[in-house]
C-alpha cells in the first residue's frame, strides 16, 4: 500500500505553516505524528495534494501546570504523556487511556493534538477531553483562538478547525484536591479501537458532594459525545450506588452505537452501562484518595 503522489512541505514555524496552508488551499493537509493521516493515505481514502509537516515546529511539546490549568502541547506524543510524572501522579486517567491506545511504537509518534484534531470518535483522547472539559487552543490565519471542547467536534472526521488552523495546545482545569478521573474501553484485542469506551472525571467538594462531573464516550456515536443526562443526574449530589446505576443506564440509553464487526448495538449499549458504572466508581475512588 502506497500513498498517491503529493508534495511535501516542511513548516519551521506556526506562521510558516499557516501561510503555506493558506497559499496551498484546500488540497493541503497538516501532518503531525501522521499515524492517523498516513494510513488513510496509504489506503488512498485520503489523497491530499500537499502535506504540510508541522512536527518540526518547536515549542509545541510540553506538559505543565500553569495557574489553574494543566497545559499540554499538541505535539506531545502519547509516549511522553505515558511517562510524564505529572500525569502519572495527578492525572492517572491519561495512563488508563494511553495503555489501551494502539501500541508503544505508534504511541512514540502519535500526538495528543493529532488524536483530537482527526475528529474521529474511535480515538480515545476526545472522550478524555470532553470528560475533563478541555479547551482547545488553535492558531490560524487570524491568530490564536480558544475553542471549548463542547464546540469542537462537528461530525464524522469534522471539527471546528478551519483548514488553515493548527491545534497547538490543550488546556484542562487543574486537578483539585478531590478530583479524579478514569478511562476504560473494551477492545477486541489490545491496540484495537474501542468497541465501547467511557471516560469519567469527577470533582468533589470537601463534604464529598459532586461539584463537577464529566462522562464521555468513545466509538459509540458518530461524533465524540458527552452524556449530559448522566452528568446532570450526578452534579450537586452525593454519589450513591443507586445514582451510579442510573447514570450507567442513561449513558447506555443516550449513546448511538451501530452494529458492526465489534458487536451488536445492544452489546455496545450494555458495555457502555457496565463501563460507565465501573469508571464512576474508579474515578470516585481516586477523587477520595
Amino acid at each position: 500500500m502506497i500513498p498517491a503522489n503529493f508534495t511535501y512541505h516542511k513548516a519551521s514555524s506556526l506562521k510558516d505553516a499557516i501561510a503555506l496552508a493558506e497559499s496551498l488551499g484546500e488540497e493541503a493537509k497538516y501532518m503531525s505524528g501522521g499515524h492517523s493521516l498516513l494510513p488513510m493515505m496509504k489506503l488512498r481514502f485520503a489523497t491530499p495534494e500537499h502535506i504540510i509537516d508541522i512536527s518540526k515546529i518547536q515549542g509545541l511539546s510540553f506538559i505543565k501546570e500553569e495557574g489553574d490549568l494543566l497545559k499540554i502541547g499538541a505535539m506531545t506524543t502519547q509516549t511522553e504523556m505515558e511517562y510524564s510524572d505529572l500525569l502519572r501522579s495527578k492525572y492517572p486517567i491519561f495512563g488508563d487511556a494511553i495503555k489501551l491506545t494502539a501500541d508503544p511504537s505508534v504511541r512514540n509518534v502519535g500526538t495528543l493534538g493529532g488524536n483530537i484534531a482527526h475528529g474521529d470518535a474511535a480515538n480515545d483522547q476526545p472522550a478524555l477531553m470532553l470528560a475533563m472539559r478541555a479547551t482547545v487552543i488553535a492558531e490560524g490565519v487570524d491568530g490564536q483562538k480558544s475553542i471549548p471542547i463542547d464546540e469542537f467536534f462537528h461530525g464524522f472526521y469534522m471539527t471546528a478547525l478551519e483548514p488553515t488552523d493548527i491545534l497547538v495546545e490543550i488546556h484542562i482545569p487543574k486537578a483539585s484536591k478531590h478530583s479524579g478521573g478514569a478511562y476504560h474501553k473494551v477492545e477486541r484485542k489490545v491496540g484495537d479501537y474501542a468497541t465501547a469506551g467511557v471516560a469519567v472525571y469527577v470533582e468533589l467538594d470537601d463534604d464529598g458532594v459532586c461539584r463537577e462531573i464529566g462522562i464521555a464516550l468513545t466509538n459509540v456515536s458518530a461524533v465524540p459525545m458527552r452524556v449530559d443526562r448522566a452528568e446532570e443526574l450526578l452534579r450537586g449530589k452525593k454519589i450513591t450506588d443507586d445514582l451510579i446505576g442510573q447514570a450507567g443506564v442513561f449513558a447506555s440509553e443516550d449513546c448511538e452505537p451501530t452494529s458492526d464487526l465489534r458487536g451488536s448495538e445492544a452489546y455496545k449499549r450494555s458495555l457502555v452501562d457496565t463501563i460507565t458504572k465501573r469508571m464512576l466508581n474508579k474515578a470516585l475512588e481516586r477523587a477520595r484518595q
Binding site: 501522521g34 498516513l38 494510513p39 511504537s105 512514540n108 509518534v109
Partner: peptide, 8 residues
C-alpha cells in the same frame, strides 16, 4: 521504536 511503514 517507530513503525517505518507509517513514516515518510
Amino acid at each position: 521504536s517507530v513503525k517505518s511503514c507509517t513514516y515518510l
